[in-house]
Design a binder for these strands. Structure first.
Lengths: 212, 212
DNA sequence: TTCAATAACGAGTAATTGCTCGTATTAAGC
DNA sequence: GCTTAATACGAGCAATTACTCGTTATTGAA
């Protein structure tokens, strides 16, 4: 497996912009159908009804395809979450802390309804690539926005360290939603799970130091 | 890549029992050093200082190696956690709910200190195999034991559905510990994280239905 | 129409990989 | 020692794979 790193040309004409889209769409399709391990660049080219040569004009190597796909998907999710966050921030203290958290959780869950099978494949069977800089930067922005949301209700929050609180609730939401998408637990209704998750988040915020 | 499924012979003599151990140990070593994608059966045989032929006498195909390794590792972790759980159950109501949860969290974290790099590789860059039946059964037993632990303190617990509560706290602990091992967040001390996690768990348990 | 830049093509290649199978070595029962 | 079963070996095969590069087609401006 070569791993050429030579950068490829940027699409100039219209047909080649379409090409990039076609290739990524085919990559997603084949990934969902065959899984990462059994997906080859030849398969992708065939599914996209183009030649391998064309594929390699825009992507320097196989992994670049998946990295691009991964990035695009993450950015779509992030956009949905940020949309809800800006709404919540705009409303200020009109909403209670609990209401705001409930909305955040719901948005997070809904975002993950976007191409869930692709999400599953990307998250579950993907080798560990270094996270994209742009995605990370948005992640930091989301974190800052959640922190701001929390600070609106600082009076109600027991946890003194707002940064820690932000980190904890993000990780908690993220992991539960992840579990919901990857392997939805049987026996519990989505509503019950959502409510339970909200309780956990609120508990984590309300908590005041107690003696062990 | 063939994927022969013919079952292989069970080791009878001593030398072959050692062989299986040697092979698994080498698999772990190579996996940690090279990562899953760049690990071949030839590499493993070389690292184990045996021949590929010998390897294929005990493992029907490449994935069987990783499946066996994965299973062994999971069982080790489960054993540690179950050990702590039986201790906690034996102590009955001597410990407060909070104390019991704190011990559980600590045991969970400590269990994951066992070969963390191997754990990282297995969890992060492993294709999606169907979970092992034996491992799943132990998982269910652990879940039942946690439920029992909770039911000892049912009076203090707001969440009416103990099964849901059990599921929620398991997933919460699991995911936070996972994050701690895979990508420890910078900026927070381990103690603060542990305390925050405990708060989240307790909040999730204490929560009583509120009006949204 | 001409022509050069851009894009698309796809047969072919070099490398790798999983795995087999015929052979050699060792162990155990007699 | 002799015999037989168990174990270990490793050269090599068949299949797959990522990727190249010489060629052809398309575009659009002059």
């Amino acid at each position: 497996m070569k791993r050429t790193a030579t950068p490829r040309k940027q699409p100039r004409q219209n047909r080649s912009k379409n090409m990039v889209e076609t290739i990524l769409a085919a990559t997603a399709r084949v990934l969902c159908e065959r899984g990462y391990a059994r997906t080859s660049t030849n398969h992708i080219a065939e599914a996209a009804e183009i030649s391998v040569g064309s594929l390699y004009q825009y992507f320097p190597n196989k992994d670049a395809l998946f990295i691009a796909l991964h990035k695009r998907h993450e950015q779509q999710l992030q956009a949905l979450i940020e949309g809800m966050l800006s709404q919540l921030l705009a409303q200020g203290k009109l909403l209670s802390l609990r209401q705001a958290m409930a909305s955040l959780i719901r948005a997070w869950i809904q975002a993950h309804q976007l191409e869930p099978e692709l999400h599953r494949r990307l998250e579950a069977e993907f080798p560990f690539f270094e996270p994209d800089e742009e995605v990370q930067s948005t992640e930091r922005r989301i974190q800052a926005e959640i922190r701001e949301l929390l600070s609106l209700h600082a009076a109600e929050i027991g946890q003194a360290d707002l940064d820690l609180a932000t980190y904890l609730i993000m990780k908690t939401i993220e992991s539960h939603v992840h579990a919901l998408v990857i392997a939805p637990p049987s026996g519990f209704s989505p509503e019950a799970l959502e409510a339970g998750l909200l309780d956990a988040i609120m508990g984590c915020l309300k908590a005041r130091p107690e003696t062990a």
